[in-house]
């Protein structure tokens, strides 16, 4: 609508007396891949979770596709959204977690079909076709009947991606999707994500995979201590960081 898929304006977030986000500004345009880099505890996950209102922010504004997240502004006053409306906003935002969080009591196919069937109440036959298609696309067409516990970490993470895609999101959030994986399994998940980016999906990716950020990212932000220290095209930030903290961090990861 507005030419901005995500817009964060001066976002603050505290847990009790601990201020984790201290004024984050960010714009992600449709079709862009924004990579988020930063040391542990810098608030990357927290920021990502604010975008789909898993965490309530204390100050500032977050818009997704032009719509204020979690609140409604009426007559200059903010009104908290009810559970239903928040859920509605979340439908169009897919999220992939570091530890997959697949539903272990459901088969792979049921994991993917659950939300479209229960949340959107789409017809089962239609959802099944789409789910099988998505699983084939992530290379797991032969595993539809398995339970998550029977899959490798990389396969589980690809199912998690398919599960999020089944809701036809306009934005995908990835929180260190490959950090819990054995090194030889990282590639298959990154390949899936590259495919997705090539298809024009808007993505915000928290990652330590510098190679991925350089190759796929349109924009890279480096966070430390709850603020965005530096941002720009990944190539520039990685090869020629302007700030001392960015340099120190990159020298450790590269």
């Amino acid at each position: 609508m507005t030419g901005e898929m995500v817009r964060a304006d001066n976002v603050h977030k505290s847990f009790g007396s601990l201020e984790v986000l201290k004024g984050i500004d960010l714009v992600v345009k449709p079709g862009e891949v924004c990579c988020v880099l930063g040391p542990s505890g810098s608030g990357k996950s927290t920021f990502l979770r604010c975008i789909n209102h898993l965490e309530k922010i204390n100050a500032g504004r977050i818009f997704v596709d032009g719509e204020l997240v979690g609140y409604r502004e009426r007559g200059g006053k903010l009104h908290e959204m009810g559970e239903k409306d928040v859920a509605k906003q979340r439908r169009s935002i897919g999220m992939v977690f570091q530890r997959f969080n697949l539903f272990p009591h459901m088969t792979v196919l049921d994991n993917v079909m659950e939300a479209p069937c229960r949340v959107k109440r789409e017809s089962k036959a239609e959802v099944r076709d789409r789910a099988v298609g998505l699983l084939e696309r992530v290379g797991l067409g032969s595993k539809v009947g398995n339970y998550p516990g029977q899959l490798s970490g990389g396969q589980q993470q690809r199912v998690a991606i398919a599960r999020a895609l089944a809701m036809r999101p306009k934005l995908m959030l990835f929180d260190e999707p490959t950090s819990a994986l054995d090194p030889e399994l990282v590639g298959e998940v990154l390949d899936t994500m590259k495919d997705l980016a090539a298809d024009g999906m808007t993505m915000v990716v928290v990652t330590h995979e510098i190679g991925f950020a350089r190759e796929v990212g349109d924009n890279l932000i480096f966070m430390d201590g709850g603020v965005v220290v530096e941002q720009g095209p990944p190539r520039d930030v990685i090869t020629n960081p302007q700030h001392e903290r960015t340099r120190a961090f990159l020298s450790k990861v590269l």
Binding site: A87, I93, M95, F97, E114, V119
Partner: peptide, 27 residues
């Protein structure tokens, strides 16, 4: 049950009741 389960379900747009009935209680 790992809180990640409810979180993943909520992130998919499920309501609190659905999360309880479909995801948390069965496990």
């Amino acid at each position: 049950i790992d809180t990640g389960q409810a979180e993943a379900a909520v992130a998919l747009g499920m309501s609190r009741g659905q999360v309880l009935r479909r995801i948390v209680l069965p496990q």
